[in-house]
Amino acid sequence: MIELPHLAPGAAALANGPNHTRIRAIRSDRWVGFDRARRVLRHLDALCDHPPTTRPPGLAIYGHSGMGKTMLVEKFKRDHPPTINHSTGVESMPVLAITLTSRPTERRIYGQLLMAMGASINERLTLMELEIRTVLLLKSNNVRVLVFDEVHNLLAGTPREQRVILQLLRYLSNVIKASLVCLGVSEARDAIAGDTQLARRLDQFVLPRWKANEEFQELVTAILRSLPLRVPSG
C-alpha cells in the first residue's frame, strides 16, 4: 500500500483502490468539517438534548445559496438517526426535516411531515384530521427538533398566508415541545419577522460569504485531504 500523508485516513484507503472507485468517491457528497460548521452543529446538538419545555428554544440559520445550509442539516440528521427500542418496539426520530415548497400551505406541510415519518397520506382527510394525525405521530416518534429548510419560500404567499404558516410552525413546536430550526437565504429573516413570538425564540446564525482568510484556507485544506488523489494537489 502506498503511503499518502497528504490525505485523511479514509481518503488514503480509497486512493489505493481502482480508478472507478476513486472517481465515484470524488463525485459523491461528503461532509467536510470546518470551525464555522462545527459551531452550528454544537448548537444543534444542544437543541436535540434540550428537555421538553413549553417554549422550546430554536435556531434560524441564514446564508446565501451554496453556503452549506442543507449539508449542515444532513450532517445533523446523520448524527441523530432514528432508533428503535427493541423491548417496546417504539421508534424514536429525534430530528425531522422537510423543505418548504415554492408556496407552502398547511395541508402541504402536514403532508410533508407525514411523508418524512413514513406515514401514508389520505387526501380525503380534513385539515383538522391531518393536524391531529401529524401531531400524534410527531409525539409518538419522540421528535425533538423540527427542521424547515427554504423558509424564504414563505414570501411567495400573501401576508395572511405567511402569518398562517408561521403560526403553524410555532404551534407545532409548542404542542410537541420540540425545538424549531429554520434555514434560508437572507430574505428568510424578513419572512420569520412576520411572527414576533416565533422570531424571539430563534437564535440567529449567519453564514457569510467566504473570504480569502484562514477559515477559507482551513476549508480548502480539509476538502483536499478528503479527495482520494494519489498526488498532492497544487
Results as ranks from 00 to 15, higher is better:
V73A: 03
M1L: 14
L172K: 06
E218Y: 00
I132V: 14
H20V: 12
M71C: 07
L47T: 07
L100H: 00
M93I: 12
F148I: 04
P18F: 04
K69I: 01
T70G: 05
A8P: 00
F34D: 09
V135M: 09
E150I: 04
P9F: 06
K77I: 14
V164I: 14
K177S: 10
N141S: 15
L59N: 01
M93N: 14
L59G: 01
I2T: 15
D149W: 03
L138S: 01
G111K: 13
G68M: 00
A11T: 01
L125R: 12
M1P: 11
M117T: 10
D49K: 14
A178H: 01
G17E: 13
V90N: 12
L4V: 12
P5N: 10
D190L: 13
M67N: 06
N213T: 02
G89T: 08
R78W: 04
G17A: 11
A156K: 02
H86D: 10
A46V: 07
E214G: 06
V231W: 10
L59H: 00
G66S: 05
L96G: 04
K139W: 05
R163P: 01
H50G: 05
Q204G: 09
L137E: 08
K139S: 13
S179M: 07
A191I: 01
H43S: 07
N16Q: 15
R163A: 12
L125N: 10
E150T: 02
R39P: 03
E123G: 09
L125P: 00
N213W: 05
H50A: 12
E3Q: 14
E150H: 06
P52M: 07
R108V: 11
G89Y: 01
G17R: 12
L136D: 14
G63S: 02
Y62W: 14
R200D: 15
P52Y: 04
E214S: 13
S102Q: 08
V147F: 02
G63T: 05
R163T: 13
A199H: 09
R103E: 06
W210C: 06
L113S: 05
V143A: 00
G234R: 15
P18T: 07
